[in-house]
Design a protein around this nucleic acid. Sequence first.
DNA 1: GTGAAAGCGCTAACAG
DNA 2: CTGTTAGCGCTTTCAC
Lengths: 338, 338
Amino acid sequence: MAGIEEVAKLAGVSTATVSRALSGRGHVSPTTKEKVVEAASALGYVVSSNASSLASGRMRNIGVVVPFLNRWFFSSVIEGAQQSLLRHGYDLTLYNLAGVGDERRSVFEHFLLRQRVDAVIAISLELTESEVTRLHAIGKPLVGVGGPIPGVQTLMVDDAAIARLATEHLLGLGHRRIAHIGGDLEFDLDFHLPTNRRLGYETALVAAGITPDPHLFAPADFTIRGGYHAAKQLLGVPHERPTAIFAASDEMAIGSILAARDLGLVVPRDVSIIGIDGHDLSDFFGLSTVSQFPRAQGEEAVAVLMDQLEPSSTPQAAANQLLPYELIVRSSTASPPS
Amino acid sequence: MAGIEEVAKLAGVSTATVSRALSGRGHVSPTTKEKVVEAASALGYVVSSNASSLASGRMRNIGVVVPFLNRWFFSSVIEGAQQSLLRHGYDLTLYNLAGVGDERRSVFEHFLLRQRVDAVIAISLELTESEVTRLHAIGKPLVGVGGPIPGVQTLMVDDAAIARLATEHLLGLGHRRIAHIGGDLEFDLDFHLPTNRRLGYETALVAAGITPDPHLFAPADFTIRGGYHAAKQLLGVPHERPTAIFAASDEMAIGSILAARDLGLVVPRDVSIIGIDGHDLSDFFGLSTVSQFPRAQGEEAVAVLMDQLEPSSTPQAAANQLLPYELIVRSSTASPPS
DNA sequence: GTGAAAGCGCTAACAG
DNA sequence: CTGTTAGCGCTTTCAC
């Protein structure tokens, strides 16, 4: 456990110089710097992040708060963020706000209050005003991903536009009876995401001169299982079966594909199905979808934070900016049966 | 940002007493403690983890190293670990060793060397001997989950036994031509897990007087997609089609179910399918499986670490112990067609 | 460009 | 049971 002092001795300089040489902060002559770097690696020296943090106030650590871990969207965002952070020399401390009660309070007491992080990224999580306020009070940047947090810089896709696009794709193929599987109310608590998607769907319909039919809406929980059950409900009716389903997530769309099969329907001949996400499995199921790019969202969140944490001449990110998405047409959508 | 000193003043005690009262270490009279706690919360005081760590040498932070994030098994283990750690007042810093090259070195330079963590949990990841040695050299406990790391305390299920159990289930139903979808060689690099599962499968076969047939083995990559393709291969043969498939993961088993359907085969009438994992989706697909309990594995890993980090009279965990598993019979397995 | 020295905020002996 | 007193290992003014 070599310390800075030993490095200084070996390099024949002061500890201050070692610190400067190794951190890049402040000016050190090239020769000196080289000597220091050499001495450091010779001794296997590495700075103690604690001592460094204590003295400097920087933690080089970002807190990431998520509601779930084993959902494709979340783990993808995290992956993107983590990789990007690593590149910046930051660590990523993970907080899973699964249990909404004590766990959640506990998280805030824990890391907010223990100042373990320089900033926090909240993924698809609606923080309370008090939580936001407290974070801001202690000067911690906070960026949201996946939905608007009042008063907070947020990265999000335009859910309404995405939903409109998906619906328009179906409309363009000639579908008129288009069902929608969206989030149920419980999910709307966080983020109005389902609502926005439903809105986009209805907007597209109306623009095409179609009155949205409440019977063509089914709520589900964003999972394959949920989509399956919702789709069975939608497709099981004897008359006026929808010719297409627009699901608010790929997992629900996949569930819908499976449901259609189980009902003896052929996709896309009998029913077209489109999702949202660009899930790993969408390709496998031949699912048409509107991709959003969660890994990129994680990276972008980090870029936003870095702009604040380490202001450089050239900001890397634009916050409150709408993120890209892309319609991917595969084999689950086609013209309706005539 | 109230400091310990202000709390001490408000409570009318010394900073040392505040520290003791708040951390629980050392004895403080109940009255004093109450006063301190009150003063602390009145001031909104929270310890600075840096200062605390620097002075005490404890980080209250565990590093978790994983090869993937968006795979059910890994995110589940992490979830379990994180929740358990939170309860112990520890944070969880996540390191994704996705890219095996620079990323990996970088991780080790970063956190190993920056002493940000008290210990590390390696999930299904074969650390190099040098990595293990270095960790041990600086006295960091290290526990493996999901496969044996030489010289390291490891939590794992008995993969051979699980595979044997799954195969015996099929045998017991009367199957004789049982195919196996296992990991391909690439995956065997980490952990011999596929090999062990294949071994268990063959052991069961041999015990039943059946000679394992290499044509009944197909490698895949543990994903739904991979399982699908492997199963098509296995089930597509015109003669002597296997009557059952044992897949080394639920995702591959699900892929197999989908492949069977696409080939016009009815599960389990024409072919029985069993997996390993107890995946979230296994219930949905009616998949028979041998559950292992990844969340519990994460929790157990934490318990092992806590025993070392905060030795108490009663050890909570037994290391190098085989973890529980359970055969769950659902509707994907039945007697073979006669 | 480099060194000296004063902390960063807390914990852990050691006394009392 | 509680107070005093050294540091923990680094960063950062401030001089030079």
